[in-house]
Design a protein around this nucleic acid. Structure first.
Lengths: 220, 220
DNA sequence: CAGTTACTAGCACAGTCGTACTACAAAAAG
DNA sequence: CTTTTTGTAGTACGACTGTGCTAGTAACTG
């Protein structure tokens, strides 16, 4: 009996409650991608996860809560992937690597991208999702700004950091939308080279403006 | 009586059938923008248009048909606006003008843009809408290609037309998405200057590559 | 005039929706 | 042991969905 008390939290549970919620969130993502967000009803998600409606409602009090959690799961997964990247000191290679990580280059990221698009669209009329979408937007924009600032400091991008952040951010999301619309045309290779070309263009433009506009350049 | 026969098609009808369909399509667009695409049910649209369900069904046999028509209305409206632009011989100014026409710079175009985003998202799982979305995608891409080709021929954009078409197209759609997500940040002015900066960048890049890569330039 | 079509309105049906609710089993706690 | 909590399942309710259907009215046709 005393032994039992020591192990009270060790093995007994078949599945962790938090893990159950994650499994349900992934069921949401599967349904959203396969049938669209409007098909992600409580019934369909429960069936997809192999649970009953009542059981699902034990983990999520409302469907809105379920949707918000599922969306947040996608956002956190992307952040985790970015955090897991090995550090890269060269700004050009770092930009290339981080931006490539954000593009839908494989099946998993394609799924995330499509789900992201669906949630983004619904966030137009759903306040709860709008707040989350805003967070994702801000995080991505901040990331773009950091990359551009580093490139600019290294003389590999124009000096107007806000303007180039705007352009890179729009290019990134535009490529993602196009990849979702025409996955046959926008392959992993074409997306990667599109980003490469843009980074090349930034460097070329900076070099050109430096050469024409100034006689001296900053040494460090 | 003879007079009546002559005027048989002149005044009698209160509203033209085709016009009725357009009015219903615009009711769809209002509902989609205000409450989201999933709220654009037959009942809601009929109420928005001030008609009964049965009457609506006399003009559209199914809800899918109604949605397709509404989406096509948006596409055609954009095409009409582009066709109505006064000709501009200078490629740089023409690009600026056409691209500005495609951005959500005023309330009407903002509405179109949001509706476009909603339909684009649903087209992921709706085959009927997917075909239309593909048409819009192709048309926009072809337009971008023409602009880039003209700029390139005038020495105002890099020679790699497909690559720059890809970049401009993605930038354009990315800006549109961002404008829908954050209309407070992406104002008409910021969107316009973003496009201007990109066109400037294209010219700068072309000039830089011409200067470094070649000793002679094509005369005509 | 009568006959036909175009149009409008409204109801009924079968289905899905989110949510509230109860009942039952298993684990944890006393 | 009993009690309480936790998890699961199932059902019921009111609201909404797209579609089929009928009836009635207005307009056009012969």
């Amino acid at each position: 009996m005393l032994a039992r008390l020591c192990y009270k939290e060790a093995v007994p549970k078949v599945v962790d409650p938090a893990e159950r919620r994650s499994l349900l969130a992934e069921a949401v993502l599967r349904v959203v991608r396969r049938d669209g967000l409007e098909q992600a009803s409580v019934r369909n998600v429960a069936r997809e996860a192999g649970l009953s409606m009542g059981s699902l409602r034990h983990y999520f009090a409302s469907q809105s809560e379920l949707m918000v959690f599922a969306f947040r799961t996608v956002v956190e997964r992307i952040e985790l992937r970015l955090a897991g990247l090995e550090p890269e000191s060269d700004p050009r290679r770092r930009a290339q690597r981080i931006l490539s990580e954000l593009l839908p280059l494989d099946e998993g990221r394609r799924a995330e991208n499509e789900v992201w698009l669906a949630f983004t669209s619904r966030a137009m009329v759903d306040p709860a999702l709008r707040a989350l979408r805003g967070e994702g937007y801000d995080a991505l924009r901040a990331g773009c700004r950091t990359l551009i600032a580093d490139l600019s400091a290294a003389g590999l991008a124009p000096a107007d950091v806000p303007a180039e952040t705007d352009r890179l951010h729009a290019l990134l999301d535009g490529l993602a939308v196009h990849a979702a619309m025409r996955p046959d045309i926008h392959t992993a290779e074409s997306l990667t080279t599109a980003i490469e070309r843009h980074l090349d263009a930034l460097a070329t433009e900076r070099a050109s403006r430096d050469a024409s506009g100034r006689s001296q350049e900053p040494s460090s």
